[in-house]
Design a protein around this nucleic acid. Structure first.
Length: 951
RNA sequence: GCGCGCUUAGCUCAGUGGUAGAGCAUUGUCUUGACGUGACAAGGGCCGGGGGUUCGAUUCCCUUAGCGCGCACCA
């Protein structure tokens, strides 16, 4: 970069007799500085409110009856910060949005973030372990969730500032979060509707279990990773069976072969064989099933139905016994004999050693390459388990109440799978590029029932309540109020195991701390009333909780502990010897002793009374250990023995229960406990296109903007998300969620590798924006990025487009220097008297407008950007301006005409460039002498004809 | 195994039934009243191989190789 003038652009400008030579605003004397302009322009846009279509109508920018154009932003996960993929997504959508807004559409771009359940929880758990050496169980559900919320909030704020920095003209007034109250209502409603239609069921099925995170994981969240292991062939009676996982083979008592396999013709289906196995002799049964592949190994295999989905299917087909071998922590169960209790990871070599000693190893193959399933959100190896979970039935027939989807009639019988297929097949939703439609069908056809329950804490609780009286579950998800039973904190007598009864004992310091912890837990539960036993230890506990929750306390003698008569004040042991007062329901042994039956009646009556009086409030009942135990017997409909067997309630332990809108349909009880599981994050994201618009309420937004015009995202998310949105919208609204799906490629590094922390090849969008400006960052992700193809990004590329921004700046300076300040604007006032040559130039510019428009409508933003880039730089600057110089110098009518022309071309160019590089164009626009609109953001697009977008 | 994509200039990629284009990179020249974050100019490609359709193929069809991706399986 060595030139006579250096790179700092300090070439002396000619003085020219001290006359001010430029008519252009002084701001143009400096080179374009994105950092300086961008924050100023951003404020201008945000102050205007034009990202909100209602404001556009109000201010007359958009006609009230204009066509709508809507996009819901794929919500970034609150797991961290935005990467280049997000930047690409924002750039593409902002181009579509700005284009349509300028075209006069009622344009909505709705932003939000995704709680990303398992991913977010996983991140927080990892940090917790790293920094405090704690697990989520050490903190407890409430405290842990608080930490997750803090983390999510921080992530959210970072994401918002990044979205703003990109210049994305989203409507922040409508921002949504997948885990906020409005979305929770949508989730509960969706769940209920699907449950009522029989499409959600609870079942014992084989699921993907992550032993580390202690949760199920859906099929789509699994990643197969290649791994090298030793492959063993074992002698299994007369057969040879191969496996990489000897440690799972303890329970294998079925040996499977293909019915057509000539080698094993003499064995009959169901035939029994005695043979020697890992822990001694077993009886094996021959199973003939076509799942056995004759070509693999010996063609014979044994099965482990409880821990393999294929084996599970075989076992189900033949009605075989299914026995669990591995527990949910990854440890072997008693069936493993001497190996029981060991972790499977540690067992393999031991089992192999034992089989070797027994002479049961036929041969060993080293370096066998196979795929292992891991949880893509956490990284642990998946162990299939049979578990009771909630599922969405994708193949079950149901009657769809209402449908606008072509080929699916309202009231007709269909399946969710069919709904998903037809939505695309019929063309109601069009996928661009269309090759992904094939990929979509392929996925749909292989789809199995979708396991939606997770055992993690961060997410929407499964909206199912179990009746405390009879365990029957209920999905009538309207909670009237929450009630909590709390035992008092620790007392001196508790430590010494002394019977307290009606004694007025006080809390120990530890007991006070326990009560404070309970208060902390209850703090965010909107507690309205605390009802407490009037004995000192409860009173004290209640007051502490009152302080934390702000709720009023009332006292009730009827909530006191069992009256122990003469037994009070003596140790448990002495009392057991003397009276044995805890064993019998109607025990009256000690003088004046209250029987358990009497206690149960007294406290239940008090509880019923309070529930009747305060059933609509959120209430905490503070009482005593024995009292609560026998109250729970009544509530949970237990027998005396069951209640006796219940473990002691901890000091200051909190038991929560919900009161639903309607009582249990089976037993009439009205106290419930919510399912502790949470829903797969995709269950809530599936509702995104309409939950963000207010569903299940019938809002005007929903009516106006749904189905959305286009769903724009990376192709890697086609199955996870797009298919599920089509499913949810189809079932719940009877429409497709969007008319178009536009899939962009992934952003890779300049060598085509994925950007990752470990490779150290991450290009951070914010850094690029700071160095080269948001416009440059945007263009680098658009030009040369054809639909569905990956983009290779390098810093050089971004730098190149910064040069272009500066070019546009300097073109503007030249035109403004040479135009009269009353210059007209194209399309909105007469262009002035132009000669024939100049008219041609103006027409040429408008032809570019047409080209750019057409490319945008076909989602060829790469070509659109390239077209306008090329025109502005190589036609307008290099040729038209260059040729204009002598004409302008000449003066006269030709010069006058040309001045108008240049101004007109600049005006049109700025409009055409604006969706692609909004900041620099807006900054220039603000300096134009005769701009008709306040902001270029809402200026009229220079090409008006509809070109056949699918709206 | 099933399916999809890519292969065009040194690099990254567009594109078209009439034997090719951009950006970046390279080289040279330039005080030229918008811009050196620039201008002008130059070099550079038998459009992966083979076959077919066609007057004519980089483009359409078949085949083959290499690379990449998705899904399924993995005893």
């Amino acid at each position: 970069m060595s030139t006579k003038y250096g790179k700092d652009n300090t070439r002396p400008r000619p003085a020219s007799n001290g006359v001010e030579l430029t008519k252009a605003p002084a701001i143009f004397l400096k080179a374009y500085s994105p950092a300086e302009s961008e924050s100023r322009i951003l404020k201008l846009w945000e102050k205007s409110g034009f990202a909100n279509p209602d404001v556009c109508i109000e201010k007359g920018v958009t006609k009230p009856d204009a066509e709508t154009y809507s996009i819901v932003l794929p919500p970034p996960n609150v797991t961290g910060t935005l990467h280049m993929g997000h930047a690409a997504m924002l750039a593409i959508q902002d181009i579509l949005i700005r284009y349509h807004r300028m075209r006069g559409f009622k344009t909505l771009w709705l932003p939000g973030t995704d709680h990303a359940a398992i991913a977010t929880q996983s991140v927080v758990e990892k940090t917790l372990h790293k920094e405090e050496k704690k697990t989520r169980h050490d903190l407890g559900r409430e405290e842990f969730l608080k930490r997750v919320e803090q983390f999510a909030k921080k992530s959210h704020d970072t994401i918002v500032s990044q979205v703003r920095a990109m210049g994305a003209s989203v409507d922040w007034t409508r921002e949504a979060y997948t885990l906020d109250e409005a979305r929770n209502l949508a989730v509960r409603t969706a769940f209920k509707k699907m449950y009522d239609a029989g499409l959600i069921y609870r079942g014992n099925r084989i699921v993907n279990w992550d032993p580390r995170m202690q949760t199920t994981v859906s099929d789509d969240e699994i990643e197969h990773v290649e791994q090298k292991d030793t492959f063993y062939y074992f002698k299994y009676g007369p057969f040879e069976i191969g496996t990489v996982r000897p440690e799972t083979k303890f329970g294998d008592k079925y040996v499977v072969m293909h019915p057509d396999d000539e080698r094993y013709k003499k064995y009959k289906h169901g035939q029994k064989l005695e043979l020697e196995w890992i822990n001694g002799p077993i009886t094996a049964t021959i199973i003939k099933d076509e799942a056995a592949d004759m070509a693999i190994g010996s063609g014979v295999m044994t099965i482990t139905p409880a821990h393999s989905s294929i084996d599970f299917e075989i076992a189900q087909r033949h009605g075989l016994e299914i026995e669990q071998i591995i527990d949910t922590n990854g440890k072997l169960l008693s069936i493993a004999g001497e190996f029981a209790g060991l972790h499977i990871k540690k067992t393999r070599s031991l089992v192999v050693e034992k089989l070797k000693q027994k002479g049961l190893i036929a041969k060993v193959e080293e370096d066998y390459v196979h795929n292992v399933a891991i949880n893509s959100r956490g990284g642990e190896v998946i162990e299939p388990q049979i578990k009771l979970q909630w599922f969405v039935a994708v193949n079950k027939k149901f009657t769809i109440p209402y449908s606008e989807i072509p080929d699916i009639l309202s009231g007709s019988e269909t399946t969710l799978k069919k709904l998903m297929r037809v939505s695309v097949e019929s063309g109601a939703t069009k996928i661009v590029p269309d090759r992904f439609e094939k990929v979509y069908y392929n996925w749909i056809d292989n789809l199995r029932d979708w396991c939606i329950s997770r055992q993690i804490w961060y997410g929407h609780r499964v909206p199912v309540w179990y009746c405390l009286g009879c365990k029957h579950h209920s999905v009538d998800a309207e909670v009237k109020s929450k009630w909590f039973l709390v035992r008092h904190g620790e007392t001196e007598a508790n430590i010494k195991e002394i019977t307290q009864g009606h004694q007025n004992s006080q809390l120990t310091p530890a007991g006070i701390a326990q009560a404070e912890a309970a208060g902390e837990k209850l703090k965010n539960q909107d507690i309205e009333l605390i009802i407490s036993s009037d004995l000192g230890r409860c009173k004290e506990t209640a007051e502490i909780i009152s302080k934390a929750t702000g709720a009023e306390v009332i006292y009730d003698e009827a909530l006191r502990e069992r009256f122990m008569g003469a037994a009070e004040g003596f140790s448990y042991e002495e009392n057991r010897k003397k009276y044995n007062p805890f064993k019998e329901y109607d025990d009256k042994t000690a003088a004046n002793l209250e029987t358990i039956r009497e206690l149960e009646e007294r406290i239940s009556k008090a509880f019923e009374k309070h529930r009747k009086n305060h059933g609509l409030k959120n209430v905490v009942i503070v009482s005593h250990g024995t009292a609560i135990r026998w109250l729970l017997k009544r509530i949970e409909n237990l027998t005396f023995d069951e209640a006796s067997a219940r473990p002691t309630i901890q000091n200051a332990g909190v038991i929560s229960m919900d009161i639903l809108k309607s009582a249990c349909e089976k037993c009439g009880n009205d106290l419930f406990e919510q399912d502790p599981d949470t829903l797969d994050t995709w269950f809530s994201s599936g509702l995104w296109t309409f939950s963000t618009l207010g569903w299940p309420n019938k809002t005007r937004d929903l009516e106006t903007y749904h189905p959305t015009s286009v769903l724009e995202t990376g192709y890697d998310i086609l199955f996870f998300w797009i298919a599920r949105m089509i499913l949810m919208s189809g079932f719940l609204l009877g429409t497709v969620p969007f008319r178009n799906v536009y899939l962009h490629g992934l952003v890779r590094d300049d060598k085509g590798r994925k950007m990752s922390k470990s490779l150290g090849n991450i290009i951070d969008p914010l850094t690029m924006i700071e160095k080269y400006g948001a416009d440059a960052a945007r263009l680098s992700l658009i030009v040369g990025a054809s639909p569905g193809n990956d983009v290779r990004l390098s810093e050089d590329r971004v730098r190149g487009y910064k040069h272009f921004a500066n070019k546009v700046w300097n073109i503007s300076r030249f035109v403004l220097e040479n135009s009269n300040t009353q210059g007209p604007t194209s399309g909105e006032s007469e262009v002035g008297p132009l000669n024939a040559e100049d008219k041609k130039l103006v027409e040429e510019t408008l032809a570019i407008a047409k080209t750019v428009s057409e490319h945008i409508e076909k989602f060829r933003l790469d070509l659109a950007a390239d077209a306008i880039y090329h025109f502005v730089w190589h036609r307008f600057a290099d040729e038209i301006i260059k040729e204009s110089k002598p004409i302008l110098k000449e003066g006269g009518e030709a010069a006058e005409s040309r001045r108008h022309t240049l101004y007109s071309i600049l005006d049109t160019s700025l409009r055409l460039l604006h969706p692609f590089m909004p900041f620099v164009t807006e900054a220039i626009w603000q300096e134009l002498p005769n701009r008709k609109q306040y902001l270029l953001m809402v200026a009229k697009w220079p090409y008006a004809k509809a070109i056949g977008t699918r709206q």
